[in-house]
Amino acid sequence: MTRDAASRRRWRDAPLALAMLAPSLIVLGAFVLYPLARAFWLGHQRCDPTGANCRSNGWDQYLDVFRSEEFQQAFGVTFRFAVLTVPVGLALGVGLAVLADKQLRGMGFFRTVFSSTVATSVAVASLMWFFLLNPSVGVLADWIGGVAKNPGLLQDEDTALWAVAISSIWANLGFTFIVVTAGLQSIPADLYESAYVDGASGWMRFTNVTLPMLGPTLLFAGVVLTSRAFQSYGEFDLLTGGGPNGSTTSLTYLVYGNNSIIKNNSGLQAAVAVLLFAVLLVLSLAQIRGVERRVHYGN
C-alpha cells in the first residue's frame, strides 16, 4: 500500500467521527471542562465581600482559603460526615444483603423493601427525617426525648451532624443493598459447597468465603458512598441550613449554602469549589483503581 492510500484510510472516517463526537464534546466542553478551568481562574481573584471589583493579585488566595478557619472547619465537617456514614452504611448493606440472599420463600418481597430507599431523592429523604425529628411533632423526637425535644437533634450543635448522617445512611441503604446483592450472586456456589463439606460454620463461611469474594464490590460501593458523602449538599440545606453554629457546614454548603459567609464572593466560592474538586480527584482516582481491580478480579 502506498503512503497516500494509508493516509487516506487514516482520515477516511474522520468527518463521520467528528460529527458523531461533536454533540458530546460540545456539552462536556461547555459544562464540565470550561467551568473547571474558569473556576480555577476565578479562584485566584480577590473580590470585595459583595463579589464586585474582582482583580488578579497572585495565586496565594488558594493558600489563604486552605488555611482559613472556615475551610478547615468545613473540611472537618465533611470528613466526619463521611466517617459517620460510610462504614455504617456498608455494614448495614452487607448485613441486609446476606440475610435476604437465600433462595427462600418471600425473599423477593424483602429485596424490594431493602432496595426501596434508592427511590428517594435527597429532598424526599431529608424531609422525611426532618418530620421524624421535628421537636414538636416528630415521632422519633418524642421517643428519644431530652435533647431531641429541646432544642431538637438537628438544632443542637453536638447532635446535628449525627442526625443528618442517619438520614443519609437510610437514604443510601437501597443503593448499597442492590450493589452488594449483585456481588453476592456472582460468588460461585461451589465455593460455599466446598466450605460446607470442610465443616465450616455459617460465620466461618461468611468471613472466609463471602467477605473476601465481596472485596471488589465493597471497595466499589465504599468509594461511591465516600464520594457521595463529600458531594452531599441537599441534606445540609434542608435539615440544618449549615447550622447550628457551622457544625454542619460542609464544603459544598460553604460554596452554595444560603447561610454561607462567602455567599456573595464569587472568587472565594470558586476557590473552595476548586479545592473540593482536588479532594474529590483523589477519591476518584482511588475509584478508578477500584474499578480496574473489579474488572481484573471480579466475576
Binding site: 459544562f31 464540565v32 471542562l33 470550561y34 467551568p35 473547571l36 474558569r38 473556576a39 476565578l42 464520594s227 458531594q231 449538599y233 459544598t252 460554596v255 452554595y256 464569587s266 466560592q269 470558586a270 469549589a273 476548586v274 473540593l276 474538586f277 474529590l280 476518584s284
Partner: peptide
C-alpha cells in the same frame, strides 16, 4: 470533575 465543583461557573 464533580458537578458540585462547576455549578458556580
Amino acid at each position: 470533575v464533580p458537578f458540585e465543583a462547576t455549578v458556580v461557573v
